[in-house]
Amino acid sequence: MIDLLTFLFWNLLYFAAFVGITLAVVFPFYYAVLSSADRSGERTASGVFWNIVFWIVVALIVLIAIFPFYYAVLSSLETGTQLFIPNYLPQSLNPANYEAVLTRPSFVSSIVNSVFVATVTVVAALFLAVTASYALARVRFRGRGLLLLTILAVSMFPQIAVLSGLFELVNWLGIYNTPWALILSYTIFTLPFTVWVLTTFMRDLPVEIEEAAIVDGASPWVVISKVFLPLLWPALVTTGLLAFIGAWNEFLFALTFTITETRRTVPVAIALLSGASQQEIPWGPIMAASVIVTVPLIALVLIFQRKIVAGLTAGGVKG
């Protein structure tokens, strides 16, 4: 009890201090943001001052966001002692770490595993989710709200809560240490997510178009395949991409359900990448591996950034 009280006390104190400091930062700054709308007309001293504050904050946000990745790239190109001297600008462009990582058969197979698992999971989830989300978004039936809620709840499951049961299931099916164990277990979060997001997208399609198709003689399946799917493909790409990222990044199930090096997925491979001895962590190759698995994701995210934002919001805010 005393523990609890002291715990709460210190945390509240931390929190109050922290809130106070941030408020002091945020609100003057907010003022600047609001006045920034007509910055062009403002030539006063305070206008210029807030303008500078605004750009400093922007620069800080960008710097903090990209520096760790920049530093990983930088480190991945350094070897030997050079790696262990902190530096802020590129000192060398040595691909040795990349060679080291890519010539490791287990790492290459982990990339293949990850691609395979994530792709199959996402395709399967989308396939099941498209028809299900049509039913959830477009057909009125009793218990629909409860069903949607259950699906949302499943997507928020703590994965650890199903781990022992899944472990039993995976062993019973005889798929332990195979990609199928991961595909099966990843469905627990990709399927509810895709159903939920696609349902919100599907609800936004105009009712009258569906009714016109019904009058034209379209069955529910024809409505989905001939009318809705062509309109929904951007949503499908977004949802699929988000689900892919989720599956690509998953760690706990991959750690639990694989045992041999060649069966691992990328996150597990990177987490368990170790050197000759326990003490020597091979930072260079780890950074190279990190860059290799991250660059495609960053590229995808940047290409589809508008759609991703729409997908995230559909999954979150709209509720």
Binding site: F251, L297, I298, L300, L302
Partner: peptide, 25 residues
């Protein structure tokens, strides 16, 4: 648009990878 793209980068990096990157930093 560029700033928005920049802040998407941390989100796009797998948790394990960011743990390793920061572990190094």
């Amino acid at each position: 648009g560029l700033v928005r793209a920049a802040i998407l980068i941390p989100w796009a990096i797998p948790t394990i990878v960011s743990a390793r990157m920061w572990g190094w930093m």
